[in-house]
């Protein structure tokens, strides 16, 4: 199962990409653990995860077509 992740703001600086594709990530907890290991710089920054444009507050199972996004603190207005 492939998942596509959009990356915004400061997180794109840390990860070095605006978008990454990952395989075999069953849920958002697994995603967080993967990201933490792969990009240690993320531990300094709080961020939210959106699944299909909704910010999640608990572990969420991912589907093949899930649209994921990593959202650092907002700064609009």
């Amino acid at each position: 199962m492939q998942i596509n992740i959009l990356i915004f703001g400061q997180l794109a600086d840390i990860i070095g990409e605006n978008k990454i594709d990952l395989w075999d990530i069953p849920d958002t907890e697994a995603l967080k653990m993967y990201l933490q290991k792969r990009y240690p710089g993320l531990s300094d920054l709080p961020y939210l995860i959106a699944v299909d444009k909704e910010v999640i507050s608990a572990n969420t199972v991912l589907n093949n077509n899930s649209e994921l996004a990593l959202l650092p603190p907002y700064a609009g207005g």
């Binding site: 915004f8 703001g9 907002y74 609009g76 207005g77």
Partner: peptide, 12 residues
């Protein structure tokens, strides 16, 4: 204004 500053995914 308060809600959009808190809720819209916008970065600066």
């Amino acid at each position: 204004v308060e809600r959009l500053k808190a809720e819209l995914p916008i970065w600066g």
